[in-house]
C-alpha cells in the first residue's frame, strides 16, 4: 500500500511538473518552446562532459570487480554494513559520494549496470547518489571564493548530513521494496 502510493507519486510527479511549469511559464509570457530548446542544448554539453569521467571510473571499477578484489573488499565491509541492512557493494560508492560527484556517478552507473536498476543494490545506489551534494567540493568552492580558509565545523556537519542521507536511503528502499 505504502509502496504503491509512493510509486504513484513518483510516476505522476514528472509529467505533472512538466505540465505545470509549462503552464506557469506561458502565463508569465515566457516563450516556452524556444527557452526549452535553448536549455536542452546546454543539457547536451552537460551529458557530453560526463563521458570521460564515466569511462575512466567504469573501466577501473569493472577491472576491480572482475579481478575478484571487489569481492574481498565487500567481504571485509560485510560485517559492518549488514548491521544496517545495507549490501556491502554500496559502501565504496557511498564513501566516494562526499569527495567526487563524477567518480561516484561512475560507480553508481556500474552498480546499476551490473545488478539492474530495480535491484536492491541498484535502488539504494541511485537514491544515495541523488540524495546529497559533494560536500568537499561545495565547501572548497564557496569558502574558497571569498578567501575563507578555516571552514570550522562545515565539513563535519556536511559529512554527518551525507551519512544521514545514506542511512535514510537504505532504510527507505528496504521499507518500500524489500
Amino acid at each position: 500500500m505504502f509502496t504503491q502510493v509512493m510509486d504513484t507519486i513518483s510516476t505522476w510527479s514528472i509529467p505533472l511538473v512538466v505540465a505545470l511549469v509549462s503552464l506557469f511559464a506561458i502565463c508569465k509570457k515566457v516563450p516556452v518552446y524556444s527557452v526549452f530548446t535553448e536549455g536542452a542544448k546546454e543539457g547536451f554539453s552537460t551529458a557530453v562532459m560526463i563521458i570521460p569521467y564515466l569511462t575512466a571510473m567504469l573501466c577501473a571499477i569493472g577491472m576491480f570487480r572482475a579481478s575478484g578484489a571487489m569481492d574481498w573488499l565487500c567481504a571485509v565491509l560485510e560485517p559492518v554494513t549488514s548491521l544496517i541492512g545495507c549490501p556491502s557493494e554500496i559502501l565504496p560508492q557511498a564513501i566516494m559520494r562526499s569527495f567526487s560527484g563524477g567518480a561516484s556517478e561512475g560507480m553508481m552507473a556500474e552498480l546499476v549496470e551490473t545488478f539492474g536498476t530495480q535491484s536492491q543494490i541498484g535502488r539504494i545506489a541511485s537514491v544515495a547518489q541523488g540524495s546529497t551534494e559533494t560536500t568537499f567540493y561545495i565547501v572548497a568552492v564557496y569558502m574558497g571564493s571569498v578567501g575563507v580558509s578555516n571552514a570550522r565545523h562545515s565539513i563535519a556537519a556536511g559529512l554527518l548530513g551525507d551519512l544521514a542521507s545514506l542511512l535514510a536511503a537504505i532504510f527507505i528502499v528496504n521499507i518500500m521494496w524489500f
Binding site: 509512493m6 530495480q118 544515495a128 542521507s165 536511503a169
Partner: peptide
C-alpha cells in the same frame, strides 16, 4: 521510481 525516496531522504539529511 526513486523520486519520492530521494525527496524523503534529502529532507531527513
Amino acid at each position: 521510481e526513486i523520486i519520492v525516496p530521494v525527496i524523503i531522504s534529502t529532507s531527513i539529511s
